[in-house]
Amino acid sequence: NQASVVANQLIPINVALTLVMMRSEVVTPVGIPAEDIPRLVSMQVNRAVPLGTTLMPDMVKGYA
């Protein structure tokens, strides 16, 4: 099963993503693939993302 990107903490809106904010985990439904974590660094989410939430492509500005 493919690992997805999961919030490692509350990720506020309009804050640049850092490695420490994200972890990889096998979850259902599948979200952004874990291998895209380096690409996500410095991008921003378009809504607050609670701890443990799977990041979906539509949550990250400029990802999709």
Rank of each mutant, 00 (worst) to 15 (best):
S4P: 01
L10F: 14
V5M: 01
I37T: 08
V6C: 05
V60M: 06
L10G: 11
V6A: 02
L19N: 05
Q9C: 07
A34I: 06
T18I: 06
P57C: 07
E35R: 07
V6R: 03
V15F: 14
P29L: 05
G31H: 02
D58V: 10
S42K: 10
V49A: 05
G52E: 04
P33M: 06
P12G: 09
M22V: 07
L10H: 15
V60Q: 01
I11G: 01
V15I: 15
A48F: 14
D36V: 08
L51Y: 15
G62N: 12
E35M: 09
N14C: 10
L10N: 13
I11S: 01
T53I: 09
S4F: 03
V45F: 03
M21Q: 04
N8L: 05
P50M: 08
R23I: 04
V45N: 00
I13N: 12
V20E: 07
A64C: 15
V45Y: 03
P33N: 08
Q9Y: 10
V60W: 02
V20R: 15
V5N: 02
A64G: 13
M22T: 00
M22W: 03
P38T: 13
P38H: 13
V30S: 10
N8M: 10
Q44E: 13
S24A: 14
I13E: 15
Q2E: 15
R47K: 13
M22P: 00
P57F: 06
G52Y: 04
D36L: 10
V26S: 13
G52H: 09
M22S: 00
Y63R: 03
T53E: 08
T28H: 09
L40G: 00
T28S: 13
V27I: 08
V27W: 03
R39F: 11
A48K: 09
V5H: 02
V27S: 05
I11E: 00
R39N: 14
S24C: 09
T28E: 15
V45S: 07
V26L: 10
D36Y: 12
G31S: 01
P29W: 03
V41P: 01
I11F: 02
L19C: 11
V60C: 03
V6L: 12
A3K: 08
L40R: 00
Q9H: 08
M43V: 04
V30P: 13
A3Y: 13
T54M: 03
P33T: 06
L40I: 14
M21P: 00
Q2N: 11
L55P: 02
L51A: 11
T54I: 07
P12I: 03
A48G: 07
L10Y: 12
R39E: 05
A48N: 09
T53Q: 15
V60I: 13
N1D: 15
I11L: 15
V60S: 02
V30T: 14
E35V: 06
A16N: 10
V49I: 12
N46L: 15
D36W: 08
M22I: 10
D58T: 08
A48S: 15
G52K: 04
D58W: 14
E25T: 07
M56I: 07
L19G: 05
E25C: 08
E25Y: 05
V30F: 14
I11Y: 02
L19P: 08
Y63F: 11
N8E: 08
S24F: 06
Y63W: 14
M22C: 03
P12H: 08
I32R: 00
A3P: 10
D36S: 09
A16P: 12
D36F: 14
K61A: 12
V41L: 15
T28G: 07
A7N: 01
N1K: 06
G31C: 03
I13Y: 15
A3Q: 12
T54W: 03
Q44T: 15
V49W: 03
G62P: 05
A64M: 11
M56S: 06
M21T: 02
V30R: 06
L40M: 07
S24E: 08
V20S: 15
A7D: 01
N8A: 12
R47I: 06
S42D: 11
N46W: 12
M21K: 00
Q9K: 13
A34C: 08
I32D: 01
T53L: 11
M21D: 04
S42I: 03
P57W: 09
K61P: 13
V49H: 02
A16H: 10
T18L: 06
G52P: 01
L19K: 07
V49T: 05
V20D: 10
Q2C: 15
R23P: 01
I32A: 01
S24L: 05
P57M: 06
P12T: 06
V49F: 03
Y63D: 03
